[in-house]
Amino acid sequence: MDTVESLPIVSPILRASGLRMRYGQGSGIVHALDGVDLDVATGETVAVMGASGSGKSTLLHLLGGLERPSAGEVWLAGRRIDGLGETALARLRRTAIGFVFQAFHLMDELTAAENVELPALLAGQSPRAARRRAAELLERVGLSHRAEHLPSALSGGERQRVAIARALSNEPLVVLADEPTGNLDSAATLDVLRLLDSLRTAGQTLVIVTHDARVAATADRLISMRDGGFVEETRLTHGSTGRLGELAGLEG
C-alpha cells in the first residue's frame, strides 16, 4: 500500500539541487533552506509538508523564481533559472509557472474574470483571446456564474478557485501552490482539493506546500520538511479504499 522509497528520476520538469537560502547576516542569520534536493516529474503532484517556519514558502519562491537562492541550482524544463535576471524570470513565470497563494492575492478591484484573464494579457494575448480563456477556466473551476463578481463578493473557497483558474491561464508547466487551503474552512478545503485533484488527473504538474495533511494526502508524493531540510519522502499510491470501514468506526 504505502512505501517509503526514493524515486527514479523521470525527466524531471523541475529540479533543485543543493538549494540554500539565508536571510539576514551575522548573528541574526536565518537558514530558511539548508541544502534541499528535489526532482519533480512531469505530471506529478508533490506535496511538501512541514510546520510553520520550516521553509516551505521559501522553497516555493525559489522554485518559481520569485527569489534567488543563496546557493544551489534550480532547473525548469531543462533550463537553469537560478541565475536569470529579474526580467527573464518574469518572462519565465509568465509562461511556465502558475502561482497559488494562501492569501489568494486576487486584485480586489478586478472581477473574477478580469483576475483570471490578467496573466494572459500580461503575456500579450489579445483581449478577446484572454477573455475566452478566462471564461473557459472559470467554467472549469465551476464559477462561470461568478465571473462578474468582485473578490469581496466571493467566499474564501471561491476566491481560491478563481486564483487557481488564474494560475492556469497560460497553461503553465508547473503550478506552485503555497498553503492553498490555509485560509479555508473544511467545506471550502474540500472544494479546492477536488479542483486540485482534477488538475492532477488531467496531468498537470503540481507542487503543493501545506501544513494540512488532507491536502498532502491527495498528492502522488509527500515530502516532509523540518528546519529548512527534507526529513522524509513518502510515495502515496492511489486506488484502494483500504480499511476505511475500520477507520470510520465500523467494527469487525
Binding site: E86, T87, A90, R91, R93, R94, T95, L118
Partner: peptide, 16 residues
C-alpha cells in the same frame, strides 16, 4: 506595492 508584486509574480517584468 502589493498589486505590483502580484503583477510581477504573474509575469510582468520590473520594467513594465
Amino acid at each position: 506595492r502589493r498589486s505590483s508584486a502580484l503583477a510581477r509574480a504573474l509575469g510582468a517584468t520590473p520594467a513594465q
